Structures are given as C-alpha cells and as structure tokens.
Simulated scan of single mutants.
Amino acid sequence: MHDKFSESRLWDSFKSGDKDAFKAIYYKYYMLLYKYGVKTSADEDLAEDCLQDLFLKLWKNRENLGEVASLKSYLYRAYIRMLFEAIKKSRRVINLAELNHPLEESSIEESMIQNQDQQESSQHLHQALKHLTKRQRQVMLLHYFEGLSYKQIAEILPIKYQAIRNCVHEGIKVLRKNIASRSG
C-alpha cells in the first residue's frame, strides 16, 4: 500500500506522462471506484462508462492537474461528479438498496422464504432511502456501503465533519422510522 509520499510521487510521475504511473493509479483504484459506481447507480454499464471517461479525462488533462492531498479522495470526488451528472442526464433512478446476502445450504422452500424475506427487507430499505435527502443518501452510502470514515467523507464531499455526523444520525432516524412503519 502506498503511503502519502509515494502517492504524491506517483501522481507527479503520472502528470509528467509516465504511463506506468497511470497504470498503477488505474489498477489501484479502478475496482474500488467501480463498485461504488454500481452501488450508486445500479447500472454496471453507466458506472463503467463514467469510470472510463474519468481515466481518459485524467490522462488527457494530466499536465493541467494540480497537486492532490489524497489521491483516493480526489478520484472519488471526480468520479462522484461524473456519475451524478451522467445519472441526471439519463434520468435514471438511483438504487442504493440492492443487498445480496449469500444463502446458506437449505431446502428449496427455506431458500424461497429467505429470498422473499430479503426482497421484502430490500424493498423496505429502498422505500425508506427515498425519504432521505440527496446529501443523506450520499453520506450513508459512503459510510455504510463503502466503509469510509467521517473524515474520509469530509475529504470527498464538500461537507464539514460535524455535518456528516449529523447526516448519518438524522439518516438513521429517518430509516428506522420508515422501516418500522412499513414492517409493523
């Protein structure tokens, strides 16, 4: 894993036109960003197209890019912008709640019941997520689905640390309230 110094050197090499540095950045962050894009858009093709566009744009504009404090945060921010712009343009619905839990070995009936329960839970969560603000959905996705800390989210989104904590706290309250009212 690269430390800040080697990431900085990698970024500088990339900006100078070093194709190996570009490949290193691409291979290190591609799958991480792709998984985030698929969870956000629920559209593998859109997520991949935006990611390809991002790396193409980075390569074409490499000489004009500035310094970055955190390469991961920089790439997330750039990708989020591209992804949400593409979603807006295509007017696609963001599906944040497709949770896939592996089934244990069981009978066909148990599997069907478990699958139905999962679908109902997923539908409840999806409906509850619709009650969150756009910002709350973004923060919740980054924190719970991507496992990012509040500090990392603050580096990616233009939101202060305390506002992120508040978003998560309020988001959880909204989700609990809406899920409880649907399942009760």
Rank of each mutant, 00 (worst) to 15 (best):
L132W: 03
R81C: 06
K130S: 07
L99A: 07
K151L: 07
I80H: 00
L125V: 03
I87Y: 08
L96R: 01
A42K: 00
S6I: 02
I153N: 07
Y26K: 09
K89D: 15
R137D: 13
I164P: 02
Y74S: 08
L175S: 02
A69D: 12
I87N: 12
S121M: 06
L54W: 05
V174D: 13
L125T: 04
W11C: 05
A21M: 04
Q136D: 03
E63W: 03
A21P: 06
E85C: 11
G171C: 00
R92I: 14
D12Q: 08
K134C: 02
S16Q: 07
K130V: 12
R165K: 09
A154P: 07
D117Y: 04
D53C: 07
E85N: 12
F5W: 02
A97C: 12
V174N: 06
L71N: 09
M31F: 02
K60P: 01
D12G: 11
L157I: 01
Q116R: 08
S183E: 13
K35N: 15
I179S: 03
K23G: 07
T133V: 03
S183V: 12
N61S: 10
R91Q: 15
L157M: 10
Q162N: 14
T133W: 02
S181G: 02
S111M: 11
H101G: 04
Y30Q: 14
Y34F: 15
N100G: 05
E120G: 04
S13K: 14
K15A: 02
Y74D: 02
T40N: 10
E170C: 05
S149A: 12
Y144D: 04
L54Q: 07
N166P: 00
